[in-house]
Design a protein around this nucleic acid. Structure first.
Length: 434
RNA sequence: GGCCCUAUCGUCUAACGGUUAGGACGGAAGCUUCUCAAGCUUUAAAUCCGGGUUCGAUUCCCGGUAGGGUCACCA
């Protein structure tokens, strides 16, 4: 039997990162077993469904690399639902119900399912046996009319028509399952296997919502995360391999994924772990690709310096979006820094000692023929060790960067070049003398 | 509130009756050029509570507590 899974989002909003994980698990399970992964756009609600949301969903899946074998839109399948609806009513398994009172967008007639009021039990692949008493469901509404099915009915019909063998969806759908099983049984269809995956939670363990920051999949792309990192991170949220490996490509995941190893409880979305993962993926990117990506953000930086700045920036970012922040912190490289001269003095130093250090450093650097890191270090190191490294390096670094935190002074000097370095040291000396 | 589900370090999780309760992120400390970043090393940190079952419970059962989901003519 070919395994067929489906991802069934409704285009009523952007693709939630949790939905992306649902799509991933469906994709992994299908591919792992050589089956098919179907995308089904659940747009029966004409009011709320929007074409641009559908486009966003498609773009998200494409970005993540989750390719589907078939795609359907429920809005294009009305005749199929009508056929089943008529069958249901004809067999008296459902009936047209006259609704009392209330107007306001509500129809006077709807189609209700004749609830047999029985106990429904199913074996969830992740949670185990779950049972419900369906009497409290009453004769629930399954369609507004013969042309307008509601969610639960459309799902049942489509899952059957599309040959879905495994329904893998979020745990928020558990309570829909008994309704769907009731209809499946009424229609005499095959009950698929169910796997309800745990929900993704916010840091405070509440439902992940907009106030907790980004939600939509594409927003993560915009922040500069790699799709590989997102995939890897999402997989690890609620699933765990047999060993302690943490880094998985999509293909690795296909090999290793097992529903049996999916967690039962919800998992908190921890962005710092995502950052770490993303950095792991950045680190293994080819250098030319890496550098060209960073260069895109450095168009306003002098070319001679941009090249040297690449590795400095690279070791300070977790994601592409960080480049902008780091760039701001490194601005002193191509822009003379404005600073408080008093801060040139090291915490354990004095004004006199600082001046002495700056002048000595300047003198030594002025005498250099080549201005690479090694030469610079050699020319000042002995002096720095006698006077105390902090007493020499702090003023030097501050004179060059004007910042409390920065790369080391020797590296800065070499990037700045001899002329600029001497100039900045001179300015610092003058500022301190004044 | 009814119904359903869940419960191991702060977080993601491993351990399918017997382990010094393991790994990772984050944290702390140290080293590496003063500061930062990166890197390396070290380290702290958990079985929700109470009953059973058992020679032995993180693990099985029951109760409590806490958290989550769901109760639409949305999906």
């Amino acid at each position: 039997m070919t395994i067929i899974t489906r991802f069934a989002p409704s285009p009523t909003g952007t693709l939630h990162i949790g939905s992306a994980r649902t799509a991933l698990f469906n994709y992994l399970f299908a591919k792992k077993h050589g089956g098919k992964f179907v995308l089904r756009i659940e747009d029966t609600d004409r009011e709320r469904s929007k074409k641009e949301f559908e486009a966003g969903i498609l773009e998200s899946l494409a970005w993540l690399g989750l390719t589907y074998d078939d795609m359907y839109r429920q809005s294009e399948r009305t005749p199929i639902y009508t056929k089943y609806l008529k069958e249901l009513v004809k067999k008296d398994l459902a009936y047209v119900s006259k609704e009392e009172g209330v107007g306001e967008g509500k129809s006077a007639e709807v189609i209700r399912f004749r609830n047999p009021n029985k106990n429904v039990t199913f074996k969830d692949l992740i949670l185990g046996e779950i049972s419900f008493d369906t009497t409290e469901l009453k004769d629930f509404i399954i369609a507004k009319d013969f042309q307008t099915p509601l969610y639960n009915l459309a799902v049942v019909i489509d899952d059957y028509e599309m040959g879905i063998t495994h329904v893998i969806r979020g745990q928020d759908h558990i309570s829909n399952t008994p309704r769907q099983i009731l209809m499946i049984e009424a229609l005499g269809l095959l009950i698929p296997s169910y796997a309800h995956i745990p929900l993704i939670l916010a840091p405070d363990r509440s439902k992940l919502s907009k106030r907790h920051g980004a939600l939509s999949t594409l927003e993560y792309r915009q922040m500069g995360y790699l799709s590989e990192a997102i995939i890897n991170f999402l997989a690890l949220l609620g699933w765990h391999p047999k060993d302690d490996r943490e880094l998985f490509s999509l293909n690795d995941l296909i090999k290793e994924f097992e529903l049996e190893r999916v967690q039962k409880g919800g998992a908190v979305f921890d962005i710092t772990k995502l950052d770490w993962l993303n950095r792991e993926y950045i680190k293994i990117l080819p250098h030319d690709l890496l550098f060209s990506k960073i260069k895109e953000e450095l168009l306003d930086v002098p070319n001679s310096q941009a090249e040297r700045l690449l590795p400095i920036i690279l070791e300070r970012i977790n994601k592409w979006g960080d480049i902008i922040t780091i760039k701001e912190e490194l601005k002193f490289f191509w822009q003379f820094p404005d600073y408080d001269p008093q801060k040139l003095i090291w915490k354990e130093g004095t004004k006199e000692k600082t001046l002495e250090a700056l002048m000595k450093v300047k003198e030594n650097l002025a005498a250099l023929d080549s201005f690479d890191e090694k030469s610079i270090k050699n020319s000042i190191w002995l002096f720095a060790e006698t006077k105390g490294k902090g007493a020499v390096l702090w003023p030097m670094r501050y004179a060059l960067s004007g910042r409390d935190k920065s790369p080391d002074p020797i590296l800065i000097a070499s990037v700045l070049g001899q002329k600029e370095t001497l100039q900045r040291l001179q300015i610092a000396i003058e500022a301190l003398t004044r």
